[in-house]
Design a protein around this nucleic acid. Structure first.
Length: 423
DNA sequence: TCTGGGGTCCTAGGACCC
DNA sequence: TCTGGGGTCCTAGGACCC
């Protein structure tokens, strides 16, 4: 059996842990640049309804009228809280797959099936006791069914946030009650397609012939189809696979026209992604850079372009990558536009130890490798921008995103520790 | 005025190899 | 009428996830 543990309204819950004064109030968390709502607690979902994931300016009124508390996103906090949760879960199974920032699959083989209910409760209670975060637990024979069980645990209060599918009656019942669009792995397109041929529930989907599913939804669909019938096709992946691409692209706080500033933002993103690259001990073979104007704007002239640079030798050296990125950017930059976003993407990623030099390039410089190690260590210990390349510049506030209402980084910065009392 | 960001997997088709 | 057969690699596009 497999358990899926999922934190409820994760971002909003993280904020509430440190703001008990807000309990019972509607709370939402906003995207980068405070543009859209990306998370909401139950209360806020109820009040804002389907409108929820709209851009903020469109639902400003409802937010005010309903007295909704808004937070800018604080990924440092969410990331750290997530790590704590995942650590706790390791105590409940030697085989844990961290599936996303707020959910994990646990292999429960070896646990007696009569004990699942207690075990699920224990997981839920322990996570809550240690972190203050509420979770739901779904237990079933396959991943897709565990996802489904988790959904039921969340929706039906009488389950007390733990639901188990451990026999065929329960499985069929769950399938009948689940809309096809709510099945994990079936997105908008396939849902529409299925509905058009009269398939509305997960159960009806399982009644389709396998050949139809294979033909119209490829092997991906077949796996879901089988898993819904209780046949496991998806393994639990304990070891995170090294990333095949690492990207970052963010809107600016305001539109930029000046190439120099855009290059500095780009250099900053490069230092972020190359750090990730070094962390997983890989090198990138190519670099893609793109920039674009604000495509929502009706009055601005529009322009978007991107360029891919193959690196002479795969590298994870921030300085080399920044230099290449800046050069590339100057090739696609056109004067006279108001740019909204720049992005970088590292690809062609291979393990560090497989990097081959080429005839015209020196082997990498050992001093430089040491230097980058020191970079990463200091920035890990004292915060992201303790040490940075001069190519990034010091005008970050000119392009940085707006985060008006970011909460303190309670758990990772000494200066931002939660204070209790008046002094 | 204001509109998120970062990933994965699969398939088909083209270009190429011997 | 019949025109070889078996591969790999790369890319673009589509679908999905959180």
């Amino acid at each position: 059996m497999i358990a899926l543990v999922d934190c409820n309204s994760f971002y909003a819950s993280c904020e509430l842990v440190f703001r008990p004064d807000l309990h019972g109030r509607p709370v939402v968390v906003l995207s980068n640049n405070d543009g859209c709502v990306i998370a909401a607690n139950k209360k806020a979902k109820k009040l804002l309804g389907a409108e929820m994931f709209q851009p903020v300016f469109k639902i400003k009124k409802q937010i005010q009228v309903n007295n909704v508390v808004t937070f800018s996103s604080n990924y440092t906090l969410y990331g750290d809280m997530s790590n704590r949760v995942m650590h706790i879960l390791q105590n409940f199974s030697p085989c844990v797959e961290v599936y996303s920032i707020d959910e994990a699959f646990l292999d429960l083989s070896g646990i007696n099936y009569t004990a699942f209910r207690d075990y699920g409760k224990q997981i839920k209670n322990t996570v809550y006791q240690y972190t203050g975060l509420p979770v739901g637990v779904g237990i079933a024979p396959t991943k897709v069914l565990a996802k489904l069980a988790n959904k039921i645990a969340k929706k039906q209060p009488e389950t007390n946030h733990v639901y188990i599918i451990d026999n065929d009656n329960k499985r069929i019942k769950a399938l009948r009650e689940t809309k096809i669009s709510a099945v994990w792995g079936i997105g908008r397109k396939h849902a529409k397609r299925l509905q058009s041929i009269g398939i509305f529930t997960a159960f009806e989907f399982t009644q389709l012939p396998e050949t139809w599913v294979q033909k119209n939804m490829t092997v991906v669909g077949v796996r879901i189809w089988r898993e819904l019938q209780g046949a496991p096709c998806l393994d639990i992946e304990t070891q995170p696979k090294p990333k095949k691409g690492i990207a970052t692209a963010k809107s600016f706080g305001k539109n930029l026209e000046d190439l120099g500033l855009i290059q500095e933002a780009c250099a900053y993103y490069i230092s972020e992604v190359s750090e990730v690259l070094r962390n997983q001990k890989s090198c990138a073979g190519y670099l893609h850079v793109f920039l674009q104007t604000n495509y929502f704007s009706k009055k601005d002239k529009q322009y978007a372009n991107g360029i891919t640079v193959t690196l002479p030798v795969p590298t994870n050296d921030t300085f080399v990558l920044v230099k290449e990125a800046k050069k590339a950017l100057s090739l696609i930059y056109k004067k006279g536009y108001r740019y909204k976003k720049v992005g970088v993407h590292l690809g062609g990623i291979i393990p560090q130890q497989y990097v081959q030099g080429n005839l015209f390039n020196q082997e990498s410089n050992p001093h430089k490798t040491k230097l980058l190690e020191v970079f990463d260590r200091l920035n890990f210990k004292y915060g992201k921008t303790t040490l940075f390349s001069g190519l990034v510049g010091t005008r970050i506030s000119e392009w940085e995103l707006i985060k008006k209402e970011r909460s303190p980084r309670y758990t990772t910065q000494w200066r931002e520790l939660l204070k209790i009392g008046n002094n």
